[in-house]
């Protein structure tokens, strides 16, 4: 035990093994580091930047930075929380996030993180981009308005389902999710609700048809307790799927 290597997150000693990232070590020790594009089942991506922490005074994303003995990590100072809140505000104004009209509300990771960081408004000027909804698939609705470009569906479809249904095109603020069909429609792909890619969306971009608003307000995943306690929505959906 004495040769166990550790890092320190917010004053707490957290053990790690060689090859783990800061995020891996934190998850194993049940220390919450906020994240949207990270899902421990997939190769780290590092795009949402919500998990950026201050490592020995330098800003690094916890999901991609290797843990190294003696690191002193700030994961919750006002400075870090202000940065995260601002990143969330950017995501909110970038898309069209109308929570009252979204079936994912109450178990949406974007919304839950905004609650967790005490975000009371989107603050910035809204882009109000024009994005259409794709309802061509018999079982699934794809709402591009809510996509935050975390690429979890891209990774799941490519690496797990081996179907390559989703991709990202464009550049800068015009970057967007696309579907691999000549028509551009999800209904013209081999996508299925059995796919891993169907179960990993942290927001309300990929949702089942024919159901919604099933759980009363007050009883939903993040209604009573914060995401730091409850954890990722995908982990819960998996539990439900296996139950």
């Amino acid at each position: 035990m004495s040769d166990q290597q550790t890092i320190t997150i917010d004053g707490r000693e957290v053990p790690f093994t060689e090859g783990q990232t800061i995020m891996d070590a934190a998850l194993a020790a049940e220390v919450y580091v906020p994240h949207l594009c990270h899902n421990p089942e997939f190769v780290p991506h590092g795009s949402c930047r919500l998990c950026v922490v201050k490592v020995n005074g330098r800003f690094q994303s916890a999901c991609t930075a290797p843990a190294a003995a003696g690191q002193v990590i700030d994961n919750s100072s006002d400075e870090i929380m202000d940065m995260r809140r601002t990143l969330l505000q950017m995501l909110f104004v970038e898309g069209n996030h109308v929570c009252p009209a979204c079936e994912k509300s109450g178990r949406c990771q974007l919304q839950a993180l905004a609650y967790y960081t005490g975000m009371l408004s989107p603050h910035f000027t809204h882009f109000f981009p024009l994005r259409r909804i794709d309802a061509s698939h018999p079982d699934v609705v794809l709402d591009f308005n809510r996509c935050i470009l975390c690429e979890l569906c891209v990774r799941a479809s490519r690496d797990v389902d081996k179907k390559n249904v989703f991709g990202i095109t464009g550049r800068g603020i015009n970057a967007k999710l696309i579907v691999n069909a000549a028509s551009g429609k999800l209904g013209d792909t081999g996508f299925s609700v059995e796919d891993k890619a169907f179960h990993v969306c942290p927001v309300g971009a990929i949702l089942p048809k024919h159901k919604g608003f099933e759980v009363p307000i007050g009883e939903r995943l993040y209604d009573q307790q914060p995401i730091s306690v409850v954890g990722d929505v995908a982990a819960h959906d998996e539990e439900n799927a296996h139950a």
């Binding site: 990143l87 950017m90 935050i148 990202i168 550049r171 800068g172 970057a175």
Partner: peptide, 21 residues
């Protein structure tokens, strides 16, 4: 910078456009 951001990460993708505006 807003034109040349690759769009991968949140702060650059959204931030460069907010800054330009």
């Amino acid at each position: 910078f807003a034109h040349e951001s690759c769009g991968f990460c949140t702060p650059c993708r959204v931030g460069t456009s907010l800054m330009r505006d």
